[in-house]
Amino acid sequence: MIYIAICDDQIHQIERIKKCIENMNLKEVNIYTFTDEKEMISFCKNKNRNFIFILDIVLQNKVSGIDIAKKINHLFEQPIVLFISNYLEKVTDIFEVDHCYFIYKPELERRLKDALEKAIQIYNNNSRTISFKSGMDTFVVPLSDIYSIERIKRYSLIKCKDHTYRVLDDFQALFPKLNGYFHQCHQCYIVNFMNVKEFNKKEFILKDHSYVPISRSRLKETEYSFQMFLKGL
Rank of each mutant, 00 (worst) to 15 (best):
S156A: 13
F182W: 00
F83L: 02
K201H: 09
K71N: 11
L143M: 04
R16P: 10
K118N: 11
F83D: 01
K18R: 11
I54Y: 02
I149N: 11
E22S: 07
I130G: 01
V97M: 10
L88R: 15
R128T: 12
K118M: 07
F53A: 02
L219A: 05
Y104H: 14
E109L: 12
L206I: 07
R111E: 15
K62Q: 12
I130D: 00
G180E: 14
R110A: 06
L82I: 15
K90W: 04
I4P: 07
I130F: 02
E77Q: 11
S215R: 08
I94Q: 07
R216Y: 10
Q13C: 09
V58R: 15
I80V: 07
S42Y: 10
G135T: 00
I2S: 01
E198Y: 15
L116N: 06
K220M: 07
Y123L: 00
Q184L: 09
Y147K: 13
Y123N: 00
R151L: 07
D56Y: 02
D114Y: 09
F199D: 12
L75T: 08
F51H: 00
D9L: 13
Y32M: 11
E221G: 12
I57F: 03
M40C: 01
C7H: 01
I14R: 05
S64N: 13
G65Q: 06
H209V: 04
F182C: 03
G180Y: 05
N200A: 12
F51M: 00
L55T: 03
D98P: 12
V91G: 03
V81C: 04
I158G: 02
F204R: 11
Y155V: 06
D145P: 09
S210V: 03
S148V: 04
D93I: 09
V212F: 10
R111K: 06
L168E: 15
T129S: 12
D36G: 05
K177V: 08
A5H: 01
R154I: 03
I94D: 05
Q172N: 14
E203F: 11
P142I: 01
I152S: 13
N195D: 04
K220L: 08
Y32S: 08
G65P: 06
E221N: 14
E107S: 15
T138N: 14
I122T: 08
I11V: 06
V63Q: 13
V29L: 04
T138V: 07
E37D: 11
Q121S: 12
C160R: 09
I72R: 00
N61L: 06
R154G: 02
C20D: 12
D114V: 09
A119M: 07
E109F: 11
C188R: 15
N200D: 15
I68E: 01
N61C: 06
I54K: 10
F83A: 01
I205N: 14
T33F: 02
K18F: 07
H99W: 02
S134C: 06
L233R: 15
F102V: 02
K177H: 09
